[in-house]
Design a protein around this nucleic acid. Structure first.
Lengths: 150, 150
DNA sequence: GGAAACTGGTATCAATTGAAACTAACTACC
DNA sequence: GGTAGTTAGTTTCAATTGATACCAGTTTCC
């Protein structure tokens, strides 16, 4: 009889830990700025490279195009993002933070970093680097399986 | 202006990696055995310590009692789990794997372990241990914040 | 021993998410 | 230059999930 302790099963532990962390973050953003995670991700990406199409945003944030679409609509409605025509392709628009979107970002970013710091407060620098690298490799490994499944 | 690269933001990376891994696992279980993740978790726990109430299962699997309830109903319907009266509390039942539930487990467990091994194939033993420990600490850290939020 | 508070479990409801279908626009290629 | 196939984005639909309300049974405590 093969033994499998759920507690020792890494995909399980990963899921639990990730969900808890996501909850903390989601609750904090919602409470502080009324932002959902997908919205926040778009803001974060737009704050760096402005003038992106939604499909580019999808690649950057690894989110489904439906999720991106909804987040973009929400942000435009709230005046945080504006759409400018894309001279090269009339199907898409270039998204850009508005002035108030930029202001929001200036508020959110430090809070996000602080939250990250507090969550990982008891981790050493070296550990954080290792975790980062392992998560990256995991992402790639899992991506490989997804193809296989299809 | 504060800079926050989404790509470097650990809660984001954690979420992406975890979601991908969960997808792989969920797809595999669904395809191989028609099990959803919550169902599979119950089976795994019941295979070790039998005769548990749903509330105990909720603690063990860290799942919401609603999720446990639904998974339990599904498993009972499919004859993988049976409910026995709980002599100490008539509100609850003691859940137990049926014979065919045990047989299923005997099939699923090795597949699960193999999948885990393949996903983490490129990780060294030492790394896996570190990851395990970090996820545990993360879980605890995040749990602390959740209280704070309430 | 009975009312009040609590607990195990289920049902109902709303939110989130992705898959699939659809529209409009674009590209290839004959 | 017109048709077939593709791509950007939205809408619609179904599945999953958790919060809330609820019911039945249990504990507390006067």
């Amino acid at each position: 009889m093969s033994t499998l302790h759920l507690d020792g099963f890494l995909p399980y532990r990963l899921s639990i830990a990730s969900n808890r962390v996501s909850n903390v973050i989601a609750t904090a953003y919602q409470a502080m700025f009324g932002l959902k995670i997908p919205e926040w991700r778009l803001v974060a990406v737009l704050a760096e490279g402005e003038g992106m199409s939604q499909q580019a945003l999808g690649v950057m944030t690894r989110m489904d195009k439906v999720t991106v679409s909804r987040a973009a609509i929400g942000l435009v409605e709230r005046g945080l993002v504006k759409r400018e025509p894309n001279p090269h392709d009339q199907r898409s628009h270039l998204l850009r933070l508005t002035r108030s979107g930029e202001e929001l970002y200036e508020q959110v970013a430090p809070k996000a970093l602080e939250l990250e710091r507090r969550i990982f407060a008891e981790f050493e620098e070296k550990e954080i680097g290792q975790l980062r690298s392992m998560l990256e490799r995991l992402e790639d490994a899992a991506a490989g399986f997804e193809v296989e499944a299809t």
